[in-house]
Amino acid sequence: MAANGMIKIDQNLCKACELCINVCPDNAIKLSSSLNHKGYHPAEFVSERCKACALCAIVCPEIAIEVYRDR
């Protein structure tokens, strides 16, 4: 069974560049409908299919994503 993982996105840092969405193999991220204080629709972690591969965090220009994995 693949490692189970989770990510935390700091919605205030996100500038909705969508790079994480574009690179996530499990489509676990999408833009939220709400706005952050800079007026962007920040990325939002939406599903449990995350394998904590951290590709999203690697491409995130704002270092807004922290990745968690449990053995």
Binding site: K15, L19, P61, E62, R69
Partner: peptide, 27 residues
């Protein structure tokens, strides 16, 4: 859950001023 990815210590906590999708902050 163990944190496996986070901000490096040698970066301050300041948010980046770079444009969305800029490569500078990644580098």
């Amino acid at each position: 859950m163990k944190k496996v990815y986070t901000k490096p210590k040698s970066l301050k906590d300041a948010p980046f001023h770079y444009c969305p999708g800029c490569g500078h902050s990644i580098i």
